[in-house]
Every structure is written in structure tokens, then in C-alpha cells.
Amino acid sequence: MGVAIRTAGAEDRELVVRLLSEAFQDDPVSGWIFPEEEYRRTTQPRLMAAFVDIVLADGRIDVTEDGSACALWLPMPAEPHDDEDDGFAAVRESVDPDNERVEVLGRLTGEIHPAGRAHEYLWMIGVAPGRQGEGLGGALITSVTDRCDREGLPAYLEASSARSRKLYERLGFALRDRPLDLPDGPQMWPMWREPRG
């Protein structure tokens, strides 16, 4: 049986924010951004809301029909935007002004983001903790990579955990260059997927 997927709209904002906040509560990168667990629980939803707002404005959010998983996609042009650094500073200011790691993460991932070729960027994918391992994330990704294959478009992401990296490898993504070492923190894996013929 397939997974029913739909495109989220503004009316789904709170659902997606809550879903991402729960899914990333124990993520290594989230733990680096917000080291104290209770502070992460109360502050991380603001960061997820900022991300969701950006993607609702400029990209697409896919959500499973039952609301248990979502994926945030941004179409990326061949040439990068010049205003990204200001965007990271604005997110920090609106989310957690005293936490420079919010901005550092955006700056570092922006520096390694591939340019020169249009692609789909999987910014984030979240599956409700009780539903992980059921294939929902794979279904969300495949729904977009199948279109990428038809259109001859590559896809890119940064894996934030060893577990997610393995999923992405199974779906045709490969490590691009080398891992990103966050300062005094975990690694992230920039991964690229060429379209399949």
C-alpha cells in the first residue's frame, strides 16, 4: 500500500512546526544548537516555525495525509542568492538572538551548498517519533526524486545523523566532498543525487 502525500498549505503550518519539533528533539544537530534539553523543547519550535515560513513562501512542503511526516523542499537556481547571510542573521534574531549557533549553522551549510546547477534542496524531513522506520520518509523523498528523474534535475541535502545518512544513501544520494564538522559539535553530511535515466 502506498503512502498518501499532499502539498501542505498555510493552514498546515502549526502541524508541520509541531511535527518537525518532535522529530528533531533528539537530533544531534538540534542538540548542538540547543544543548540544554528543556530549552531545546521550548525554543526549537520557533526555529522550526522560521524554517516552515521560509519554505511556505519560496518552496513546497509535502506532508503525509495522516500528518505523521513532512518534507521541506526548496527549488534552487543554478546561481546562489546574495542575501543568504542576512537571512541567517534575521532567523537568529527572531528565534534566539543570544544563540550564535543558529546563525553559524546557516552560514556553514550555506558555504558548502552546491552552486552552478539548478536542483531540488531537501531542507528538512521529519517523521513523528512513534512512526519512524515505517518508510514514510522514503516515500516523501521518492515522490520528489521520481519527478527529478523525469525532469533531469539533481537533488541535494545535508544529513544530520548517521541514521538519516543511511536512508539517503539507499535512495541514491552520495556524500559530496567531505562531511561538515560543526564547531565543537557533530558532523553533517552534504549529499547529492544525480537524476536517474
Rank of each mutant, 00 (worst) to 15 (best):
M1G: 15
G2Q: 09
A4R: 07
R6K: 08
R6T: 06
G9R: 00
D12E: 15
R13E: 15
E14F: 15
V16I: 04
E22N: 10
E22F: 13
E22D: 15
A23N: 02
F24I: 07
D27W: 00
V29K: 04
G31V: 05
P35S: 05
R40P: 05
R40I: 01
R40C: 02
R40H: 02
R41Q: 12
T43V: 02
P45H: 03
F51E: 13
I54C: 04
L56F: 03
D58S: 08
D58L: 12
R60Y: 11
D62V: 07
P75W: 00
A78W: 10
A78S: 06
E79T: 13
H81D: 15
D82F: 02
E84C: 03
N99F: 15
L108P: 01
E111R: 07
G116R: 04
H119E: 07
H119V: 12
E120L: 05
Y121G: 07
W123C: 13
A128Q: 09
Q132Y: 11
L136R: 12
L136T: 13
A139W: 06
I141T: 14
D146V: 14
D149N: 00
G152R: 05
L153E: 05
L153C: 03
P154W: 09
S160T: 15
A162N: 00
P179L: 14
P179K: 05
L180W: 02
Q187H: 14
W189Q: 02
M191S: 03
R193P: 10
R196K: 06
